[in-house]
Design a protein around this nucleic acid. Structure first.
Lengths: 136, 136
DNA sequence: AGTTGACTTAAAGTCAACTTTAAGTTGTAC
DNA sequence: GTACAACTTAAAGTTGACTTTAAGTCAACT
């Protein structure tokens, strides 16, 4: 089950130049060539979906390479994964508070969100300060 | 209640150059000077906390300026806020699935996550494809 | 055998979000 | 009144994540 790069582009919506860039970074891998053209295993589509979610979560390509890259196999490093999951959990909590804050701000009559007690409370809730990795 | 830029740096952990940059972009505002030194209203600390959460949520500084900037007051645009909240909600769902996926991967005995049915299921769950804004 | 279209590479370019640098200014402390 | 630390500005530099460009290659079709 191998896909031509063109098919991967069409199915994933990811640009060819991006696929080459990801491969160069060790994030994905091509399994051969047809002439010059890269061929990918079909599971690259899952991988790309995962990469997109990971980016959305604020992980850098380097972090994603650590977690799911092709050439890091020896070190799956389960502690690291758990640690990331915990980071993510905290992050999700803050984002949930932000979501509630936005929803509230959308109906609150105050001209300035910062004058609103409910918004303030949500904000406090959201900012249990914990510094995330520098890369963004 | 005004704070010297140095105090803001100390309390918020945000670099002075970043504060100047944010001000230049209209994201925050200083209320005056002491000599050359910028003075900020104490509420800038809440604002910065909010900005950090927003960045974590994947919003660009420009989007944040639209949402909470100082010079956009006429257009609070409640529909836009609600829309962002809904984006965020979808995002949170994907991130929750990713968190579960990471946790599972950390205990799953499979050498390759992609060979694991549970991981696959979480992945499918996480990737209800919806393209987010280009800026990241 | 020649044209076409989808790819290839290496290198340079772009963009957001900052940071660094160089040279200058100020309030306070001595 | 002078030294010093903490700021100031404008401009250039950096980083991550790509994209664009220019010149070339190949398989397939005519």
């Amino acid at each position: 089950m191998s896909l031509d790069i063109g098919e991967v582009v069409r199915e994933s919506g990811v640009a060819a130049s991006t696929l080459r860039y990801y491969e160069e970074k060790g994030l994905i891998r091509s399994i051969g060539r047809n002439g010059l053209r890269r061929q990918f295993n079909a599971d690259v589509l899952d991988k790309l979906a995962l990469i997109n979610i990971g980016k959305e979560a604020g992980f850098s390509l380097e972090e994603l390479t650590d977690m799911f890259g092709e050439y890091k196999r020896p070190a799956i490093d389960r502690d690291k994964l758990l640690h990331k999951a915990n980071d993510l959990e905290r992050s999700i909590k803050r984002l949930s508070a932000l979501r509630d804050g936005l929803r509230h701000a959308a109906k609150c009559p105050q001209k300035n969100h910062f004058d609103c007690a409910t918004f303030q409370r949500l904000l406090k809730l959201a900012s249990k300060r914990k510094k995330r990795s520098a890369t963004r």
